[in-house]
Design a binder for these strands. Structure first.
Lengths: 345, 345
DNA sequence: ATGAAAGCGCTAACAG
DNA sequence: CTGTTAGCGCTTTCAT
C-alpha cells in the first residue's frame, strides 16, 4: 500500500492531469476555498489520494507568505526550564497545526541576536527566551522579529506580549517562609546579574529588607547551574547565613551537595531554598523547598499569545504565573544558637 | 542602525535594481558560484548590505529542493533522554548551518507515522526516535522517509544508519555487578514490552540466566517513568528479590522513593540499579548505580550520520555506544539472610 | 463554476 | 562575464 519509495513526490499538475481538470480546480478542491461542482471535486479527490498527493508545504509557504511554523529561541537547551517551555509550546502549537523550530544560542548573547533574525526568516514568528540580552538590544531586536512572544521577561517600551513567572513574588514568599522559621541572616545566591529574573529577585530582596529590618539579607554572585552552586558552598559557610536562597533549583542542588561533603546538615545547620521546582527537586534528600514555576504552561501560553498575533487578533495581555511555594524538607527552623544573634548590616 | 521595522523584506530584485545589474548577477555574487567582475561584485555587495538583504530561505528551498533543515521525531519530549538527543543534534546541526524542527508524537504510535511523514516534507531528513513502533511498520515508514537516521534502535532489513546505545551490554554489566555483590534473586522491571531497548535488555537477561543458573532472575512488567516505578514497589517486595534492575533511572527513582516510604532501606535491604544516568541520578540518596548512556553524543552522532546522507556520502556504519557502568550507592552486598536462600524458578 | 495566466523569490541553464 | 528566460509547486486574480 504505502511504502513504495517514490523518487520525486507528485505535484498538483499530476493530480490535475489524472483528474482531467486544471491546476486551479485541484487547488480549489483541496483547499475548499471556492465552490466546485461536486462531480469534479470527487474526481479530484480520487486522483489526489490515488497518487497519495499532498501539497508541497514549501511552495504553499512561498505563495501564501506563511509557513505554519514558529521558532523558539533559547539560551541553553541544557536548562530544564526550557525543556518544559519547549514541550508546552510544541504540543500546543501542534494542536493548531503548527510546527516548531528550535534554536539554541548556547548561552552566547551575541549569537542570540543573529540566530533569532536568521531563524525568523524560516517561520512566522519567534518565541524568544533571552533572559540575558540587554534591554536596549532587546527592544531593537523585537521590531525586527515582528510577531514575537517573550518568555520569562517583559519588554519595556514595546507592546510585545510576554509570558513569564512572577519571580519577585516567588522570592518574597520564600523570604517570608525563612523569616517565619526564625532565620535572621539570609544569603541570596544571585544568577546572571542583568537577567530579568535575577533583577526581579533583587527587587523582592530590597522590598523585604525595607519591610523587615530585623533580618540581614546579603547577596552573593553565584550563577545558574549545579557547578556554580557547588562552588558557592565556602562562601555560604563564611557568610554565617542560616538561610540560603539559591537562584534556582540547580544552584540549590549543587550547594546542598557541597554542603553534604563538608558535613553541614540541611536543614539543621542551614536551610536552603531553590526556585523553579524542576522535576527532581522533590526527590532530593532532603526534598527541596522551592517556588514552583509551571514551565509547561508557560510554553502553552506562549503559543496562545503567538496564535493571537498570527491571527492578527488583539495581542492579549502579558501573563504572569505566580510561583507556588513548595515547602519541603530543605528548610526548617533556624538553629537556636543564631536566632536573633546577629545585628550586622 | 538596525531595528527599523521593514514592512516587507527586500527581494533580490531590489538589490539588482540598486546595483544596476541583473538578478542573476546578484545571485551569482551572493552565492559565489560563478566568476563575476570584481567591480560589479562590489556594487552588488554594497547594495545588498545597504538594503540589509538576505535571500529568502523559502524561495531558495523551493528552487534548490533543499531546506537546510532536519526534523527530529520523538515519542515524548518529557523524557530526559530525548532532551539530550535534541541538544546534541541541534548543536551539531547548527555548526553545519542546519536548523532543526521538533516533532513530539506524545507517545502515540499511530500519530508518529503521520507526524513523521508530514514533517518530512518540510525538511531534508528525519532523525527518528520510535522505540515502540512495530518493526514492520518501521520498515515501511523508512522507505518513505528517505534520508533517515534511527536513534536507539536498528532496522532489520534496510541499510538505515542508526545511532544507539548497547542496552544489552549495559544490562549485562549491571547483572554481573549484582551477582558479584552476592545477589542471587534478581528482578527486572521491564519497560515498554516491544520496545527495542527493552528487548535488548531481555536478551541480556536470558544470556545471563543461561550462564549463571545459580541466580534467579524474574521479569515484572513495569513501565518507563517515575510513577510506574513507584507503583512497582509492592510487587518488588513480594518477589523477594534482593536486587532490582529498573528499566531506567526514572523507574529506579520512583521505586526508591516508594521503598523509602515503606521503610525499606536501599541498598541494605534491596539494591536498585537504573539505566541512562540522567543528570540527577548521582544526586539521589543514595546515588543511583546505573549504566550511563551518552545522550548528547547520541544526538551529535545522529547528526553526523545525517550529514553523510545529505551529502550523499557513504551511509556510515551504525554506531553503538557502550554504556558505562556507574557504580554508586544504591547497590551493595546482598543482605546476609537471603544469600543462597532461594531456589525458586 | 472553471481555466489561463501571473507571480511568490530565487537559481540555473541558455544565449550572447 | 553578464543578462534573459524558464522554471521550483503552488494560489489567486482575471477572464470566460
Amino acid at each position: 500500500m504505502t511504502g513504495r519509495p517514490h523518487e520525486r513526490s507528485r505535484t498538483i499538475a499530476d493530480v490535475a492531469a489524472r483528474a482531467g481538470v486544471s491546476l486551479s480546480t485541484v487547488s480549489r478542491v483541496l483547499n475548499g476555498n471556492a465552490r466546485v461542482d461536486e462531480a469534479l471535486a470527487a474526481k479530484v479527490r480520487a486522483a489526489a489520494d490515488a497518487l497519495d498527493y499532498t501539497a508541497s508545504p514549501l511552495a504553499r509557504s512561498l505563495v501564501l507568505g506563511r509557513t505554519n511554523t514558529v521558532a523558539v529561541v533559547v539560551p541553553d537547551l541544557e536548562n530544564p526550564t526550557f525543556h518544559g517551555v519547549l514541550r508546552g509550546l510544541s504540543r500546543a502549537a501542534a494542536r493548531d497545526g503548527y510546527h516548531v523550530l528550535v534554536a539554541d544560542s548556547v548561552e552566547s548573547v551575541e549569537e542570540e541576536r543573529i540566530l533569532a533574525v536568521e531563524t525568523r526568516r524560516r517561520c512566522d514568528g519567534i518565541v524568544l527566551c533571552a533572559p540575558r540580552m540587554p534591554e536596549d538590544d532587546l527592544e531593537r531586536l523585537l521590531t525586527q522579529l515582528q510577531p514575537v512572544v517573550l518568555v520569562n521577561r517583559e519588554a519595556r517600551s514595546t507592546g510585545t506580549p510576554a509570558v513569564t513567572a512572577d519571580y519577585r513574588s516567588g522570592l518574597t514568599e520564600l523570604l517570608h517562609l525563612l523569616r517565619a522559621e526564625g532565620h535572621r541572616t539570609l544569603l541570596y545566591l544571585a544568577g546572571a546579574p542583568q537577567s530579568s529574573s535575577n533583577l526581579q529577585r533583587l527587587a523582592a530582596l530590597r522590598a523585604f529588607s525595607a519591610e523587615h529590618p530585623d533580618v540581614a539579607v546579603r547577596v552573593e554572585p553565584c550563577g545558574v547551574n549545579f557547578a556554580e552552586g557547588h562552588d558557592a558552598a565556602d562562601g555560604v559557610l563564611a557568610s554565617g547565613a542560616t538561610g540560603v536562597l539559591a537562584f534556582n533549583d540547580l544552584v540549590a542542588m549543587g550547594l546542598m551537595s557541597a554542603l553534604g561533603e563538608r558535613g553541614v546538615r540541611v536543614p539543621d545547620d542551614v536551610s536552603v531554598t531553590g526556585f523553579d521546582d524542576i522535576p527532581f527537586a522533590r526527590y532530593l534528600t532532603p526534598p527541596l523547598t522551592t517556588a514552583s514555576v509551571p514551565v509547561t504552561e508557560l510554553g502553552e501560553q506562549a503559543w496562545h499569545r503567538m496564535a493571537e498575533l498570527l491571527g492578527s487578533r488583539a495581542p492579549g495581555h502579558t501573563i504572569l504565573f505566580r510561583p507556588r511555594l513548595e515547602v519541603r524538607g530543605s528548610t526548617g527552623p533556624a538553629p537556636a544558637r543564631t536566632v536573633g544573634a546577629e545585628a550586622a548590616s
